[in-house]
């Protein structure tokens, strides 16, 4: 499957929320990375038809989504940001309701619900009320409902927001397991969410696509721009405060710094391999901090 965005734009009150966005996505996990207000949700909403674009086109396998009609909707699975669902529904009821909404023939609903609940490890919670689920369980229910129609495109908007580290790792693994033979678009501003599972990163800033590439390619681009420095003083020296410090850790009386700089910021600084957070920070500036 291939999704192609061509010059997609959206304005709110005269200001671009997304400007001339073009990208081609093939099977794999795509991390849509950007600060709050970078245009991630706008892009997803344009893709799903919730918003009307001010310009641009979207194609799926070279077919414009306008010509696909509601058939397009059966090709996507969507997990919105902070879903509450219906607190009074049981997990099984909610899944069945989503099957009705997705117009899945009745003969397929029960085995599909059972299978998905098993995959997301919620089979024992099938009779539980949605309101009684933990945040992580609710997110797993969210991804299970998104997978009901076995979509070719899975869209996840800030799926790990509010989850504890264990649930976050569990959820990441789940996304990886669902990523086979489909496009997964994962919008987030939390870098570790996509660092290890995304095959491609789309870096958005102020509505503009700044970078697209694999995590390795993006981090390689910063070779010679990330520096590690260990100092015996407890404070950051005055001459370094103008640099972007991506990490600062205290060690005894001294400090350990990671600095983003096009030039060597300190005589004792050592060039190190960049991580994705630093790529994000480098391109999005202080706003990303």
């Amino acid at each position: 499957m291939e999704v192609r965005f061509e010059g997609l734009s959206k304005k709110y009150r005269g200001k671009y929320a997304l400007k001339n966005f073009s990208a081609t996505l093939e099977n794999g996990v795509y991390g849509l990375l950007g600060t709050n207000g970078a245009g991630k949700t706008t892009l997803l909403n344009l893709f799903m038809g919730i918003l009307k674009p001010d310009g641009g086109e979207i194609y799926i396998d070279n077919e414009n989504i306008r010509s696909l009609g509601t058939d397009f909707l059966s090709r996507i699975g969507y997990l919105p940001q902070y879903p509450q669902f219906y607190r009074d529904f049981t997990v099984a009821e909610f899944m069945d309701y989503m099957c009705v909404l997705k117009d899945i023939p009745r003969q397929y609903t029960k085995p599909r619900i059972r299978g998905l609940l098993h995959r997301v490890n919620l089979d024992e919670a099938a009779g539980k009320k949605v309101g009684a689920l933990s945040g992580g369980m609710r997110q797993r229910l969210g991804i299970a409902q998104a997978m009901l129609s076995n979509p070719g495109i899975l869209i996840l908007d800030e799926p790990t927001a509010g989850l504890d580290p264990r649930e976050r790792i569990r959820f990441r693994n789940l996304i990886s397991s669902f990523a086979e033979d489909r496009i997964v678009i994962l919008a987030t501003h939390i870098v570790p969410d996509i660092e290890f599972i995304a095959s491609q990163i789309l870096l958005l800033h102020e509505g503009v696509l700044l970078k697209q590439g694999s995590p390795k390619a993006l981090t390689d681009e910063l070779t010679g721009k990330v520096w590690a420095l260990e100092l015996d003083t407890p404070d950051v020296p005055r001459d370094l405060i103008h640099h972007t410090i991506s990490n600062m850790a205290r060690e005894g009386e001294g400090i350990r710094l990671r600095i983003l700089s096009d030039t060597k910021p300190h005589p004792e600084a050592q060039a190190v391999t960049a991580n994705l957070e630093e790529v994000f920070l480098y391109h999005c500036g202080e706003e990303a901090m």
Partner: peptide, 19 residues
């Protein structure tokens, strides 16, 4: 709107006029 379900409705085949 309060539960955020309207977003899911809009991305399903029967989530619009049928709902």
């Amino acid at each position: 709107k309060e539960t955020g379900m309207y977003m899911l409705h809009r991305t399903t085949r029967l989530g619009g006029p049928a709902t």
